[in-house]
Simulated scan of single mutants.
Amino acid sequence: MTLDLWLDVNNNGVVDPGVDNLVRSTMTDENGQYAFAGLPAGAYLVDVTDARGVLAGMALTDGADATDDYSQVDPYAVTLSSTGGIVSSDFTADFGYMASTPLTISGIVFEDSIKNGAWDAAEILIPGATLSLYRVVDGEWFLVGSTTSAPTTGFYEFTDLPAGEYRVVADVSGTPLSGKFQTTQTATGAVQHVTLESANSANNDFGFYAPPYLPTAVTMAYFSATARSDGAIDVIWGTAMELDHVGFNLYRGASLAGPWERLNSALITPQFPGATTGADYTWLDAVVEPDTRYTYLLEDVDTQGVSTFHGPVSITASPPAAVTLVAFGAGGNPFAGLSLLLALASLALGSWKRRRALL
């Protein structure tokens, strides 16, 4: 989400190009969070520009005036004062949006034991899988949020969505399906394509199957990425066991659609090959650009040359600063809070929350 910060020169609470000064522009990260840092005292206006059209089909909500975590008018006037050389902070520049016609995407995650690409009543439903939802605008994917499949039912859903194009991606790392082959979405690169128009979309199901004659190369415990305060990105993963495992490949792309670049020049060897115990791994990706989003995909390779892919996970690289963002999580509600150095505000899309800060 794009936002502009203006210096309100004539202090009238209205953006007047040619009179007011554009201080800077920014974008929210995958969690809807943003910050304007290092500002001098003055009268400012925060303007949600949505240059990429992510808010299409959504309307600004009305909340308590000048109150943190409540939706404000757009543009929103903020005054920062200085006392003893210390500039004040403002946490109230929050904007909430909700779908004009709220819609839902839902489905289940299951073990496709008969390998027919559809759930049958006797097949096991899988809890704990991570489902990530992306909105597609002009061919670019924007992360809406993530959720997990429910205990017992394997059910997941994303609610309060506007009409539009979406993609759903399933990550079964850490579940009984880890390392198994996906039997659904085979024609679309393991990604579920969804078009919302005027009705909810159900039965967006994900099935997985493992032939009994193939060994499980590795059991994944987790796979994620974290933006570091020095501007680099840590890609981290862990295994629960490493039977019949020969190594990993790590790939980076500009989006889930690729193109993909392999980061390691040689296979990343397991710490405990053939063991029933697991290990933790970290890859430091230092060749990144600030405020740029990167997507990572992990491949594990077994002794028979069979590859299993995990992820993807996405992260936005931070400028070197005193602010650290954790940019990818498995929580079902993307309204996660953000602790910033001086100030914070938020932007919400229906059930999505956008946060930012003025410092």
Rank of each mutant, 00 (worst) to 15 (best):
187 A>M: 07
187 A>I: 04
189 G>D: 10
190 A>R: 15
191 V>R: 09
191 V>P: 04
191 V>T: 14
192 Q>S: 13
194 V>P: 05
194 V>Q: 05
196 L>A: 07
196 L>P: 02
196 L>F: 00
197 E>C: 10
198 S>M: 06
199 A>C: 02
199 A>F: 09
199 A>S: 10
199 A>H: 06
203 N>A: 15
203 N>Q: 14
203 N>P: 05
203 N>D: 10
205 D>A: 06
206 F>W: 06
206 F>P: 03
208 F>G: 07
208 F>W: 11
209 Y>P: 00
210 A>K: 12
211 P>W: 10
211 P>F: 09
211 P>L: 04
212 P>N: 13
212 P>C: 12
212 P>E: 15
213 Y>Q: 14
214 L>P: 01
214 L>C: 03
214 L>D: 08
215 P>A: 12
216 T>A: 09
216 T>F: 11
216 T>L: 12
217 A>H: 04
217 A>Q: 00
217 A>V: 04
219 T>C: 03
220 M>F: 11
221 A>Y: 08
221 A>D: 10
221 A>M: 13
223 F>D: 02
223 F>P: 04
225 A>P: 14
226 T>C: 08
226 T>G: 01
226 T>Q: 15
227 A>W: 05
228 R>V: 03
228 R>P: 03
231 G>T: 05
232 A>Y: 08
233 I>P: 08
235 V>C: 10
236 I>L: 11
236 I>D: 15
237 W>I: 06
237 W>C: 03
239 T>W: 08
239 T>M: 02
239 T>L: 03
240 A>H: 07
240 A>K: 15
240 A>M: 11
242 E>F: 06
242 E>G: 00
242 E>W: 02
242 E>R: 06
243 L>G: 03
243 L>D: 11
244 D>R: 14
244 D>C: 06
244 D>W: 13
